[in-house]
Design a protein around this nucleic acid. Structure first.
Length: 155
DNA sequence: GCCAACGTTGGC
DNA sequence: GCCAACGTTGGC
C-alpha cells in the first residue's frame, strides 16, 4: 500500500464539500500535470492520502481519504464545455486520468502547514520543499506515521 | 534540441 | 498583492 497527499484549493473543492457528498466520495478530475498523472496511474485501491487545503488561511491537512477507484480516463478533458477541457486530448488515447477517493478519517483538529514545518522528521517532505507545486505527491511511510500521530498530540 | 517567453501555482 | 519557482510552448 502507498501513501499520498492530495492538494486542493478549498475555494474550488473543500473537505467540507467532500463531507457533503452522499457517499463521501469524489471523482478526482482535472489533473493536468504529467508527473501527477503518472502518480495517479500507480495508485491502488486501498491506498491512503492526506487531504490538503492549499491557498487557504491557514493551509491545513483536514483528514484522510482512501482510493476507492483506480485510474480511469478523465472525460472532462474531451468535453469542450468543461473548464478542464484539453483541446490537445485525443479521446482515442486519453492523456489524462482521474480516480475516486472516499473519506476515511476526519481529523478533529486539522494539521496546519506551520506545524508540519516545525517537525524535524518532515524537513525533506515534498510539500514543504521550496517551489513544490505537485498537486499529487507520494508520502513516505515514515512521514505518514509522524503526521498521523499529530492530531492526538494536539489535544 | 535549445532556451526565452509565457502562464500558472502557491507560500508568504 | 507580490513574486519566486515551475512546466509548457514555440521559434529558431
Amino acid at each position: 500500500m502507498k501513501y499520498w497527499l492530495l492538494k486542493t484549493e478549498p475555494s474550488t473543492y473543500s473537505w467540507n464539500d467532500l463531507q457533503q457528498e452522499a457517499t463521501q466520495t469524489v471523482k478526482w478530475e482535472g489533473v493536468r500535470n504529467y508527473q501527477a498523472r503518472n502518480f495517479i496511474r500507480t495508485m491502488k485501491k486501498g491506498d491512503l492520502a492526506f487531504f490538503y487545503h492549499s491557498m487557504a488561511k491557514p493551509n491545513i491537512i483536514t483528514g484522510i481519504v482512501e482510493v476507492v477507484r483506480e485510474a480511469y480516463s478523465d472525460i472532462t478533458a474531451s468535453d469542450p464545455t468543461h473548464k478542464y477541457y484539453d483541446p490537445k486530448n485525443n479521446p482515442g488515447n486519453p492523456r489524462w486520468s482521474a480516480f475516486d477517493v472516499q473519506i476515511k478519517q476526519n481529523f478533529k483538529n486539522s494539521i496546519t502547514r506551520d506545524l508540519l514545518k516545525e517537525i524535524p522528521q518532515l524537513t525533506q517532505m515534498e510539500l514543504l520543499k521550496k517551489g513544490s507545486r505537485l498537486s499529487i505527491q507520494p508520502v513516505t511511510f515514515q512521514e505518514w506515521m509522524v503526521i498521523t500521530k499529530l492530531p492526538d498530540l494536539m489535544k
